[in-house]
């Protein structure tokens, strides 16, 4: 049985990735961050033997180290890592720009990916050796189209750079990389079971966004699982199979 560790798994894309790996018979270690949201616990009742919940705050060295230790107690190795967690921060255009909000997305999205790889790599010396990252077109500099300075976009650019450096070193050592853009997904940012789920409809009743979380997860899972003949290239690929530049 193959296994996977997934960060930011409490809801939306992360949660759907957990569900779909479980459906395929994988053992899943799901990183819990939103302790008041019970969706992972509900899923665990369906998959008591193959779903393990691991407290995991990727913004803290100690928390990631402890999570790796906890996973190492249950599994002799890890086949696949998926860094899906993301944090958001401020941007320009909403009045006075508040740079103090710009640190968190960098720390979660870019440094979080580095912490995950650094602390989990000792468990990934055998097995599939696959490192997967949910990034975004928002981090692609060459097609940057937004007109506000966005800490989120900047953090995804930083993530892509950190991955480039990791790829340059780890790919020759047998690790394979997946860099994924999920498309414009209708993610409900709920934190408690009692929070209302948005309808994702505009004033005219039209659906906002392009994909549901389960749709993008269904596109991601085969990309993450299947081997490629061109593992020597780091390419950002979206849910429709299109490759993006950097």
């Amino acid at each position: 049985m193959k296994n996977v560790v997934i960060t930011g798994a409490d809801r939306n894309i992360g949660l759907e990735l957990v569900r779909q790996f479980l459906q395929r018979g994988w053992k899943v270690f799901a990183g819990r961050y939103l302790m008041d949201l019970p969706l992972l616990e509900e899923l665990q009742r369906e998959y008591p033997d193959t779903l393990t919940l691991v407290p995991l705050d990727v913004s803290k060295d100690e928390a990631v180290r402890a999570a790796a230790e906890a996973v190492g107690k249950e599994a002799d190795h890890v086949d696949m890592l998926i860094h899906n967690a993301a944090g958001f921060g401020g941007q320009s255009g909403d009045g006075e720009i508040d740079f103090t909000t710009f640190a968190a997305p960098y720390n979660i999205n870019a440094l979080g990916a580095m912490r995950m790889v650094h602390y989990f790599l000792p468990l990934m010396q055998t097995g599939m050796k696959r490192l997967c990252f949910v990034s975004s077109e928002a981090g692609v500099v060459s097609v940057a189209h937004r007109t506000e300075i966005s800490s989120y976009c900047m953090s995804k650019t930083a993530l892509n750079m950190a991955l480039r450096l990791m790829f340059n070193q780890l790919q020759p050592l047998g690790y394979t990389f997946r860099l994924y853009h999920p498309g414009w997904v209708r993610s409900a940012k709920i934190e408690h079971s009692t929070d209302a789920v948005p309808t994702f409809k505009d004033a005219d009743g039209n659906l906002i966004g392009k994909f549901w979380p389960w749709e993008t997860a269904a596109a991601a899972v085969p990309q993450f699982i299947e081997d490629r003949e061109w593992e020597d290239r780091l390419v950002l690929i979206d849910n429709e199979g299109a490759a993006w530049p950097f």
């Binding site: 960098y106 870019a110 981090g139 500099v141 940057a144 966005s150 976009c153 900047m154 953090s155 650019t157 930083a158 892509n160 750079m161 950190a162 450096l165």
Partner: peptide, 8 residues
């Protein structure tokens, strides 16, 4: 990793 996001 600090200079790439400035480009963005």
């Amino acid at each position: 990793v600090s200079k790439a996001p400035l480009n963005m």
